[in-house]
Design a protein around this nucleic acid. Structure first.
Lengths: 207, 207
DNA sequence: GTCGTAAGTTACACGTGTGTAGGTTGATGT
DNA sequence: ACATCAACCTACACACGTGTAACTTACGAC
């Protein structure tokens, strides 16, 4: 039934299980995924998973951690130099390239973490990312005479932009990531550039 | 153990179960939720759920459908009149007000649907919404001399903006929805207003 | 070659969740 | 009062998934 594969070293098996696990979690979501499927795909029996990761949450935590670390590094490198305008575009391109090259990891990061884990709401990475962007914005806002308190709004808006566009692109695959990155970077840049000092409501709603 | 509540009419029970189910699905996600918990909260035994909705997916489908219909109606009404600029802001405000008034429904719509259902990727509502916005954009783009093929990018970017900001606001709750709507509407409007005819990459990446 | 140990297995106990069969209760009209 | 029908319940059969205990197999050192 389940033809067992070759015997691997501990570290090699660990690496393989992380890969397989990422694929399964991406496809089924955390709750929907089963260690049974992961073990089967890896041509291994279930106890091996407990041996290496202690259980479902352990494996998931390792996968999440690696994926976050990888994405953050990739973006950090891409924005290490250049004008602000260039950095915005580089960040967008780095993010979308990640979406293209690692669709499974992206899927996991955008899906919800297990409810039991601390953090409550959504995947913590995107929030962390937004937090960092927000800090950068807050500094720039203060220099430019804007209200620094509103920085988180724009930070989350930008993260949401690229995330949702990335999700769409995963299915559409139509314009190249380079082109898409150019568009959303332009949208974000121009939007921020021409922001009124204190955006007040244009129309008052009656009722 | 489970003190049974009063006897209700079929339609009243149905309505109650939809309400309770929405709360539970919002808290646990589709896979994580159990009919057992829903039945318990409703002071009813499980078979009642099967009687009314045929099963887990049936109940979920009803909840999703109602929630989508409600949100679309709310947004549609809000953008029925005014200048384009006003409509953008009204749409943002309508969306964020929905987030504020119906956090459970919003949570469900942003979470993933059951994998078995057709549609594959993410919650279909947000995609549908983006599709409609994209159509509107495509028309405007053509009139203004922009490439209509890029309209979906901007449509999804805007939906992603408000969605992610909405998710953040659910936890932050700091600036009022009116103020937040003003900010993201300004960002979106100014960004679109000052878009270059053909956004090309500003910096070429080496390596 | 044989011996030790890391790698891997089979088998079981347990909990939880789904879906259904068949019986029970209570309101409502006459 | 009592028949009737909708509303509701108890009890079961079943599948699946987790986690653990006890046993087996292959590789490498000497």
């Amino acid at each position: 039934m389940t033809p067992r594969g070759p015997r691997l070293s501990a570290s090699a098996r660990r690496a393989q299980l992380v890969d397989v696990g990422r694929a399964v979690f991406a496809k089924r979501g955390y709750e929907g995924a089963s260690l049974e499927e992961i073990a089967d795909r890896a041509k291994v029996s279930r106890p091996v998973l407990y041996e290496h990761f202690g259980g479902k949450e352990g494996l998931y935590a390792v996968i999440i951690d690696r994926e976050m670390e990888y994405l953050v590094r990739r973006i950090s490198e891409s924005i290490s130099a250049g004008t602000p305008r260039e950095r915005v575009e580089a960040a967008a391109l780095a993010f979308l390239s990640y979406v293209k090259d690692h669709p499974d990891g992206f899927a996991i990061l955008t899906h919800d973490a297990p409810v039991t884990a601390a953090g409550g709401g959504m995947s913590s990475l995107l929030n962390d990312l937004a937090g960092r962007v927000g800090d950068v914005f807050a500094a720039s806002f203060k220099d430019a005479g804007y209200d620094a308190k509103t920085a988180p709004i724009y930070a989350h808006a930008l993260i949401g932009m690229v995330t949702f566009v990335g999700q769409w692109w995963t299915e559409a695959r139509k314009p190249s990531v380079e082109e898409v990155a150019g568009h959303i970077a332009a949208l974000a840049w121009m939007g921020l550039r021409h922001l009124p000092k204190r955006p007040t409501r244009v129309a008052a709603k009656k009722g």
